[in-house]
């Protein structure tokens, strides 16, 4: 069974399958078309959310300055951009961005995770002892916990559907009422811990995904990531704790 001795081929290099110089494609398609691209989407959306949460956390701390400050802040949120924008327009714009971010983030996370699991159909009998940090291996679970939390949280404090004492436009009262209930605190604190881990690994991960991390910057990136994670989760946790201990009431 000798092979064909005369296959037609120009002795010249044929472009390899992977080649093919197409015209400029839309960035979205390009980003979505590869694992690295999806990771980049995840990183950018993730960082957006980090930014939102950072601001959100700061805003929440106003609770320690009493009802007027806090509600005033909530009210101000809705007046951003006036008189150019109509009442709450900015807020809706921000919500839109956030929803898009969460959707993109979760979809890419889900798609990549599925792919990753498929890449090892047969698991090791002797389970690998992961060097990797706890946060890494719990990234996916942490994410899911956060997802569930956010849904519940929005229904609880924004929409109010889950909150028996909900008073529209009175977030201060809502929050304080909320945190009278011990198990609500538990849920919040649990979620915030998960969030802390998520950001801690997530930030560094994002830095690498976006190629921002370089040998000389590695330590700085790590530091910022941990600082953000601690800052954000502790900043948030301060609220339920504050209410429980009666510092804020």
């Amino acid at each position: 069974m000798a092979l064909d001795l005369r296959p037609a081929s120009t002795g010249q290099d044929r472009p390899s399958p992977a080649a093919g110089v197409a015209a400029a494609k839309p960035i979205v398609e390009i980003a979505w078309s590869s694992t690295i691209g999806k990771k980049a989407v995840m990183a950018v959306t993730g960082l957006l959310m980090v930014l939102f949460l950072f601001v959100h956390m700061l805003g929440n701390l106003k609770i320690f300055f009493g009802p007027n400050d806090f509600n005033g802040y909530a009210h101000w949120l809705r007046t951003i951009g006036e008189p150019v924008l109509h009442n709450s327009w900015y807020l809706w714009f921000q919500r839109f961005i956030l929803v898009v971010a969460v959707v993109l983030h979760v979809t890419s996370a889900a798609q990549l995770s599925r792919r990753d699991r498929a890449a090892r159909p047969i698991r090791y009998q002797h389970h690998p002892r992961w060097q990797a940090s706890f946060a890494t291996s719990t990234m996916r679970w942490g994410g899911i916990i956060i997802a569930l939390f956010v849904i519940w949280h929005v229904l609880d404090l924004t929409v109010g559907a889950l909150n028996p004492h909900f008073i529209a436009g009175q977030p201060y009262q809502n929050v304080v009422a909320d945190f009278q209930v011990w198990w609500i605190n538990v849920i919040y604190i649990a979620a915030l811990v998960a969030l802390g881990f998520h950001i801690n690994h997530g930030f560094r991960s994002a830095a690498r995904t976006l190629g921002i991390e370089r040998p000389d910057r590695a330590r700085a990136v790590r530091f910022v990531g941990t600082a953000l994670a601690l800052g954000i989760s502790l900043g948030f946790i301060a609220v339920p704790v504050g209410v429980m201990t009666g510092v804020a009431h």
Binding site: L3, S9, G11, Q12, D13, R14, S16, P17
Partner: peptide, 10 residues
């Protein structure tokens, strides 16, 4: 490898 991809080497 470059030539394998180019189809010149089996």
């Amino acid at each position: 490898s470059r030539q394998i991809a180019a189809g010149n080497i089996e």
